[in-house]
Amino acid sequence: MTRRINAAGLSHIMQWEGKELVAYRDVAGVLTIGYGHTSAAGIPKVREGMRINDTEAAEILRRDLGKFEERVEHLVKVPLTDNQFAVLVSFDFNTGALHKSTLLKKLNAGDYDAVPVELMKWVNAGGKKVKGLVNRRSAEAGLWAKGEFVASNTVDADKAVNKKDVAVIVGTGAGGAATSVVPVLPDLIDAVTKQHDDLTSGEWARIIVAVVILGLTGYGIYRKVRS
């Protein structure tokens, strides 16, 4: 049985893909619906004026993710935690490039610490750095840093996601005051980069993890103060 993405990973993808319940044409003119679903991804075929509901959108996404879950399971030769598996599914779903990435090569060589650094290299579109991709890669790096196992790899799409997972991925909470937790990460990485271009992948990974933990700790303190 193919391994399935966990609830935290599914929430992450839903957050960054966005949801449209009425068919629309993307920037390339391709009919799209739900969480970025197109006819090229498989059933259902997207038609002009097509409408779906929230449940259908989630079901279509889970079906679309199946291809990428299989790819990660096939391409990665080292053990992965549930969150690590979810990060790679998200990355491949977004880029379709896991098979040819340096990230995969280093990971299969046992260099887990290199993954957050390699993720942050995939932030360009059209030759320019895109803030949305920077933030998405930062969220993936944060989820990779968590790294713990969860109870199941077969969480249903409509199952409630633990609020802690959402806070880690999205960097926000009910009060809305922690929305800068994730976006701050790439800015700090850029600042460090200008000073230390010769850092090893392990050192980079520790920096990324430390910044993520620092941000989440601050968010936790904020929640306690508000409560």
Rank of each mutant, 00 (worst) to 15 (best):
L185V: 12
F91P: 11
M14C: 10
V130Q: 08
I169S: 14
G49K: 08
L216D: 00
W122Q: 07
A141D: 05
A7G: 11
R4G: 05
A58Y: 03
T172W: 05
V87K: 08
V150P: 09
A210E: 01
I207W: 05
V46E: 05
D190I: 06
V78E: 10
Y219L: 05
K131S: 07
I213P: 02
L185S: 03
G173P: 01
R226K: 09
V182N: 02
T81H: 14
V184Y: 04
T179W: 13
N83Y: 13
K194Q: 03
V115I: 15
L188T: 00
L143H: 13
F91R: 13
G132E: 00
A139R: 07
T172S: 14
G9N: 05
T32S: 01
D111R: 13
A191K: 03
D64H: 05
D64R: 03
A205H: 04
T2H: 08
M120F: 11
N83C: 06
L65V: 14
N6I: 09
L188S: 03
G110K: 04
N6G: 13
G66W: 01
R136H: 06
Y35W: 05
L214I: 07
A178I: 02
V46H: 09
D26Y: 14
M50P: 03
A97P: 04
L10I: 04
G132A: 14
T81Y: 11
D197N: 02
Q84P: 05
N124E: 15
G36C: 02
V181H: 00
G132F: 02
P44E: 07
I207P: 04
V72L: 08
A174W: 02
V76L: 08
A97G: 15
V87S: 08
